[in-house]
């Protein structure tokens, strides 16, 4: 199988007023193409920091992170921006849409930075909005639609540049149970039908259950790594 993420002996320290804080202490993990990984763990266990590093938004203190075979330590800030643009789609807890722009423009934004022409961007953005069921809302502003719809727009934005990897940081944290399930179903479809690798952070076991693989962080280390309960059952 093709390795999307390969992490070797990863450590991350933060400088604070209280001194050096060791947030990640030697993490090793490999995630292959088509996997659906849920990351869980108590607050302060380092799972958010781990996600930031996966998203190339933060630098490692020591160790190596290979994304799609590339050593991220060797890349410049702008190289990383380009890598994020092409490889990764982000879905955040707070949706993080740009409030002044309509849905089409929001979805098309990564394509702007990819250098795509305006009319091509628009066609592609409409196409992807349709795939998340929001083609009728293209010219709406983010505050004119519901939270669940906003998260769908955010997913559409994450998908628009055809990434290999989707990183979702508590994507259902601000949504009710029913909407959460719909969003998770969307992720499952993407994973199964499109073969997109998904890594998602959550602290709700119900949400984690949608994934195939569960990684548990405790105190900056991976404490457990294996198939989710559902898949254990299925495999049995």
């Amino acid at each position: 199988m093709e390795e999307v993420i390969k992490i070797r002996n990863l450590s991350k320290n933060y400088h604070t007023d209280a001194g050096e804080v060791n947030v990640l202490k030697g993490v090793d993990i490999t995630i292959e193409k088509g996997e659906f990984v849920a990351i869980m763990g108590p607050s302060g266990s380092g799972k958010s920091t781990f996600m930031n590093i996966l998203g190339c938004l933060d630098k490692v203190t020591s160790g190596n992170y290979f994304l799609g075979g590339k050593d991220t330590n060797a890349l410049s800030r702008d190289d990383l921006a380009e890598l994020r643009n092409h490889m990764i789609g982000f879905v955040f807890q707070g949706f993080n849409l740009i409030p002044r722009q309509n849905l089409i423009d929001n979805v098309a934004l990564p394509l702007v930075y990819a250098g795509m022409k305006a009319h091509e961007r628009k066609i592609r953005a409409k196409e992807i909005l349709k795939s998340v069921g929001l083609e009728a809302f293209g010219t709406y502003l983010p505050n004119q639609i519901s939270g669940g719809q906003q998260q769908r727009v955010a997913i559409a934005r994450a998908l628009v540049n055809r990434p290999k990897l989707i990183l979702a940081d508590e994507p259902t944290g601000n949504l009710d149970t029913k909407t959460s399930e719909e969003i998770m179903q969307l992720f499952c479809d993407l994973n199964v039908k499109e073969g997109i690798t998904i890594v998602l952070v959550t602290h709700e076991p119900d949400i984690a259950a949608f994934a195939k693989r569960l990684v548990n962080f405790v105190d900056g280390k991976i404490q457990h790594d294996g198939p989710t309960a559902l898949h254990v059952k299925e495999n049995a």
Binding site: L57, D78, A81
Partner: peptide, 16 residues
């Protein structure tokens, strides 16, 4: 600031 963060995350380079 947050908007800038989003833009950087989805691939804006410094010059953008």
């Amino acid at each position: 600031t947050r908007e800038i963060g989003i833009r950087i995350a989805i691939g804006a380079k410094q010059r953008h």
